[in-house]
């Protein structure tokens, strides 16, 4: 169990070794992005305040800094400890505008905005898009998705839960905007998986 944190303890719970800790987490994310749908075990020592999950915190601490804006969903934004923790450990400014977020942290997938509401990038600069970090509970159960595209030899099955509402249609629309579109990092307890915008998703039959 994660020890409960005292009110002033946002100063704690970061990487014990930010250099090698961040490197290990990044390689895990990179491999997950390069081979979409694979479940990559992630190991780190972060202890963020609840309700932010440790995996989400590790991703934020690895990728976010003063040059990246973070959008927080209502459940995270409402928690002053989470906001302070992110501010202290990343230095990233929080934005209320989903369509201007470099990173979006989604703690409550059931209540998240549409994928189209986030920054999509432009045809000239498709990199100017939001990367969404979703706190999923499972990467081994849930709706079975059949994946294909770059990083996937033939096809690959991914299950995760919970799944955003109307996900199949939303993801198809995201793919139709290519090279614009958002990329997803699915942050589960102890593991991550990614869905870059280049991945095509089909719901498996049965």
């Amino acid at each position: 169990m994660q020890p409960s944190l005292r009110p002033e303890s946002f100063l704690e719970g970061g990487f014990a070794d930010p250099v090698l800790g961040g490197q290990a987490v990044f390689r895990c994310i990179m491999q997950a992005m390069a081979e979409p749908g694979t479940v990559q075990p992630i190991s780190h020592d972060l202890q963020p305040p609840e309700p932010m999950t440790a995996t989400m915190a590790a991703i934020a601490a690895t990728l976010c800094d003063a040059d990246t804006s973070i959008w927080l969903d209502a459940t995270l934004a409402a928690n002053a400890q989470v906001v302070k923790w992110l501010g202290f450990h990343t230095g990233a400014p929080v934005t209320p505008r989903a369509d201007q977020a470099t990173f979006a942290l989604v703690g409550d997938i059931g209540a998240m905005p549409a994928l189209a509401d986030f920054a999509q990038g432009t045809d000239s600069y498709p990199d100017r898009s939001s990367t969404l970090v979703l706190a999923v509970e499972h990467l081994d159960r849930g709706m079975a998705l059949d994946l294909s595209g770059p990083g996937i030899r033939d096809s690959r099955t991914l299950r995760f839960a919970p799944v955003p509402s109307d996900f199949i249609a939303q993801w198809a629309a995201n793919g139709a905007r290519f090279p614009r579109g958002v990329d997803l990092i699915l942050a589960a307890p102890g593991a991550v998986a990614c869905l870059p915008r280049s991945t095509r998703v089909r719901q498996e039959e049965g």
Binding site: M30, M33, P126, D127, S129, P150, P179, D183, R197, S198
Partner: peptide, 8 residues
């Protein structure tokens, strides 16, 4: 790098 991977 992550953006580059996402948009090959």
């Amino acid at each position: 790098i992550l953006k580059g991977i996402a948009v090959p």
